[in-house]
Design a binder for these strands. Structure first.
Length: 491
RNA sequence: GGUUCCUUGGCCGAGUGGCUAGGCGCCGGUCUGCAAAACCGUUUACGGCGGUUCGAAUCCGCCAGGAACCUCCA
């Protein structure tokens, strides 16, 4: 290929050509959700970003194993409930078993992802199901002299590590700065250095989720799960590790340190990070309390929402920005996305009915190559979309009878739309299976429109307008074309 | 305070040295019985100041504003 796939590697802070370690096999690990709350718009960003990558890598012919973990070991609270597991806390409040809470929110997460047309990953390992692997990882790090035990807990010795390796390669930090800027918190006396991070924590009595280990009954440090499960399912060296930019430090930095401390080098070749979704310029997140859940978007039931937004509108809204840019939520932006997406989908429907001619008069040359080049340039979906909109103009020109398209070009455009709009960007045509989409229902609407057509022929405008206006009031969109009236349900 | 990054037209959002991004909106036109849709055309840009260059939104410096991260949260 002339312009092979390039992706931005956070480690080098530049775009790099993607070359898998074991072609055609490709390994990809992405940090998944912590299942102790309803999935919100912030969760949609990484899921959709890496879904696009997953889909596109497969289109390029790679056999992808995509691992996205489920964090169900709640670890610690940082507020007044210090020492209590997040999931345990929620469980006690709601009088449920911790794993019942995990299952509930995991189901909710999967439902939302399915609605957003996010493909299931190849493997979704649970942190709680890989305690043994995490304990093994901690043992290796201890054996290599980069960790120490203290009162039943095990901490990573950042200073010892930094003498042989560089702690901070991913986030561009050095430990002197970090030591100077780390806040002094309670309960840190066990650590030799405030910047040391936990590999294993001894559980407090009220901590429900706990497992036996050589050091104490407790639970693994947060960073261990990804290192242990990445290695288990993708091997000691794999291609891509993804996640949100907010995870660069400390999570991914610590993962690198753990990998190097346990096996001598990092497991990951390409580190990829999606940017945040913001609300009024601020990150949307649970801790800030400014999040809107995906369910709320789908049903419009939130004070900040002017209306309900279809899952595909959310997906399209996210894809209209590059994954490394922030994207700011607003009703105005979502409504614009909704209309833009409808324009694309209408063009797709027109494409099915378009008649071909002997020659092509509209400008549609090189569409496939342009879209491929945009995808190959670090997954530039906004550019792909802009090229598709250019094609929409050509399609509509032909539809209006003001231009022609050859059979071969028509087939090519259909194929390109199928590849990029549906297969790669994962957008789906929702109106096809719209409300009450039964055959009888459709025929009833067709009947009304044929009565209106007769009324129009008789210049009985009162009757024809009444049918149109009533249908519009019911939520139908009526379009008069040369071949007669078309209809669809709005939203 | 430290690290990293951002600031584009009414709104969203691409673009890293010279070529119309795109969408939404507004306005005008074509089409229509009137509309809607569609199409065509038009309209507002690159935070501020300085520098490099034949030429900068794009490179460099300073200033202003903003964000993410800086915990044993995940």
């Amino acid at each position: 290929m002339e312009h092979p796939l390039h992706i931005y590697n956070t480690l080098l802070r530049k775009k790099e050509q993607f070359v898998p370690l074991h072609e055609p096999h490709t390994g990809m690990y992405v940090c998944g959700p912590t299942v102790y709350g309803d999935p919100h718009l912030g969760h949609a960003r990484p899921a959709i970003t890496f879904d696009i990558l997953f889909r596109y890598l497969q289109h390029l012919g790679y056999k992808v194993r995509y691992v996205r973990n489920i964090t169900d070991v709640g670890h610690l609270e940082h507020d007044a409930d210090a020492g209590e597991d997040k999931i345990a806390k929620k469980a006690r409040l709601e009088q449920l078993e911790p794993m019942e809470v995990v299952q509930y929110y995991l189901n909710r997460y999967r439902d939302a992802m399915r609605a957003l047309n996010v493909l299931p990953p190849s493997i979704e390992p649970h942190a709680s199901g890989h305690i043994i692997e995490q304990i093994e990882l901690v043992k290796h790090i201890l054996d290599n002299g980069f960790a120490y035990e203290s009162e039943g807990s095990v901490y990573f010795d950042v200073e010892a590590y930094d003498k042989k390796h560089h702690y901070g390669v991913l986030s561009g930090r050095n430990i002197e700065d970090m030591i100077n800027t780390t806040r002094v918190l309670d309960g840190q006396e066990e650590k030799r250095n405030p910047i040391d991070f936990a590999l294993w924590k001894k559980a407090q009595p009220e901590h429900i989720m706990r497992w036996p280990s050589p050091w104490s009954d407790g639970f693994p440090g947060w960073h261990c799960e990804c290192t242990a499960m990445g290695k288990k399912y993708l091997g000691s060296h794999f291609d891509i590790h993804g996640g949100g930019m907010d995870l660069v430090f400390p999570h991914h930095e610590c993962e690198i340190a753990q990998a190097v401390a346990s096996q001598g080098d990092d497991m990951v070749h390409y580190w990829m990070h999606n940017n945040m979704i913001t609300v009024n310029g601020q990150k949307m997140g649970k801790s800030l309390g400014n999040f809107i859940t995906l369910d709320e978007f789908f049903n419009g039931n939130h004070p900040m929402l002017a209306q309900a937004y279809a899952p595909m509108t959310i997906r399209f809204f996210i894809l209209q920005a590059h994954y490394r840019s922030t994207v700011d939520f607003s009703n105005e932006a979502l409504q614009a996305a909704e209309k833009g997406l409808a324009r694309l989908m209408d063009a797709w429907k027109s494409l099915q009915k378009l008649q071909s001619a002997a020659t092509t008069s509209v400008e549609i040359g090189g569409l496939r190559v342009k879209c491929l080049e945009a995808m190959n340039d670090d997954l530039n979906t906004p550019i792909v979309i802009s090229h598709l909109f250019d094609a929409v103009r050509a399609i509509n020109t032909v539809k209006d009878g003001k231009g022609t398209i050859s059979a071969a070009d028509l087939e090519e455009i259909r194929s390109v739309f199928q590849l990029f709009l549906f297969d790669t960007m994962g957008l789906a045509n929702e109106t096809a299976a719209g409300v009450g989409g039964s055959e009888a229902f459709g025929k009833a609407v067709d009947l009304l429109l044929s009565i209106r057509q007769q009324a129009k022929a008789n210049k009985d405008w009162a009757t024809s307008d009444k049918i149109r206006n009533e249908l519009t009031a019911l939520g139908f969109e009526i379009k008069d074309t040369k071949e007669g009236a078309e209809w669809k349900l709005a939203n």
